[in-house]
Design a protein around this nucleic acid. Sequence first.
DNA 1: GCCGTTTTCGGCCCGACTGTTTTCAGTCG
Length: 576
Amino acid sequence: MTNADVAQVFNEVATLLEIKGADGFRVSSYRRVARTISELATDINELAARRELHTLEGVGKSSVAKIEELLETGRLSLREELLAEVPESVLRLLAVPNIGPKKAALLWREAGIESLGDLKTALQAGKLSSLKGFGPKMVTKMLRGIEFIERSAGRTRLGMAWKISTLLGGAVLAMKGVERAEFAGSLRRGRETVGDLDMLCAANDPQRIIRRFVQLQHVTQVITASGNKALVLVDYQPFGSLRVELRVVPAESFGAAWRYYTGSKRHDARMRERAAERGWTLSEHGLFEGDRLIAAQTEEEIYAALDLPWIPPELREDRGEFELKKVPRDLIIERHLRGDLHIHTVASDGRNTVEEMALAAKERGYEYICITEHSQSSAIAGGLKESVLHGHIKDVRAVAERMEDITVWMGTEVDILPDGRLDYPDELLAELDFVIASIHSGMGTDIEANTRRTLTAMQNPYVNCIGHPTGRLINQREAMPIDIAAIAKEAARTGTAMEINSNNYRLDLKDEHVRLARDLGAKILINTDAHGVDQFEQIRFGVMTARRGWLRKGDVLNTRPENSIALFVAAKRQGR
DNA sequence: GCCGTTTTCGGCCCGACTGTTTTCAGTCG
């Protein structure tokens, strides 16, 4: 079992206990164990073998025994006992708004509801009106919630949410009387997906702003609107629809509200603890000692009052940010990046020419790019046959000659074949400046086979980077099971970088994997995998992901000048 | 279930909102 497997079981047990009505603190301790394990840089099996499980934060005697049981037998008797009482499908009811553990238990016990489908049918038929907490308003809300779940499959990709937020933010800022408007929530923290968009604005006349807001052109449904807030559904085609919550807050306490609604919930909980230790209270209105206001106007003031540096939103996940004496000044930002080494053109499945891509990159202030078309096995993606690649190398070199103020390298995104060999011979790879190797097909379910396949590819002296290492497509395709820790160690050993693919469908490596890989010594490359000039801007999402993985400038290969990249390649080829 | 100790129990983050079997439990963030 992997760390993620163990964590999932603990999470499931927590939810099952919650439905059964177990003590809330007991429930949270299971969640805490799950979290600790999922964020662990070490293999849980190793820790268990070394008898060090008890050293983990929040893991006591009882959890040690349960982890050991899981690792030894692959099963957990507590989980099985609970599942004998509560069917697994009942867990999914919790995704519906206004249904928590209590109502889920009620639905299942009193009405025999075991799935979302059951619930929808029963709600529509008006069969639940006798149940406590299922009045007409609740029924309407729940039905809308179920429809939303069905329509959006849960969460929205960061890239789409970003587009919508930009458009909507502009509309709100343009309203008379709005002094300031900002987004909060998981969008601000740069999470790969977003549930609802949380938006804040500062204005004196909240009711007027709310009235205007619900009448905006793209608002298709008003879910609630009262006083200083509104929850609406907005629809911006072709990007899609999303729920947006706007709160109008006073400018004097904007920082308090922004911090609060940015979350994460766990980060906020830790902040409240810190406030409580000092006998203070912290809320969306500010930091208070009794009735006396200590800080509210800016986030910085609040953090400072609690003896903390201002913590960047991407770090607010309670993953160790409270132990920081100061936030690293060189935490990665977009401006640190000097180039992009994963770019497609019309020669394979891109939409722009080499020259167009190079000019667009130069426009962004990049010093270098690398053209990396697909290889012959990726037929659907217009992969280049060996003979065609020879010609393309000449074409790209010719463009490179002509370009001023930007270096254009020639590379490839070569397929990693099922046995770990590459889709081009070494002699051909040797002619290229930089080689990304990626898996595009035959992503198996066997973690050992997948891992071996990638390890083998990394051992090739011409492979400089593993592209999108897990192959996931957010909301579309699961990540293939692969041992990231093993790959990161080998990456560090062989001098191979691991990619953060900034495309908002991929964001692969994902945040926790980024941090793990960094901790194990791997260098990271943040690329866009741009298939057109319009996609360079997606680098933003890769950088956010990198920040969520706590990367600093020095951890990222493409913050280095071009000669240093060339040295990185040469060192591996020469076996240094 | 965990943790720390004033050490084997008692506390663990908490305010706002909402529907409503009207006085608060349940949910949310």
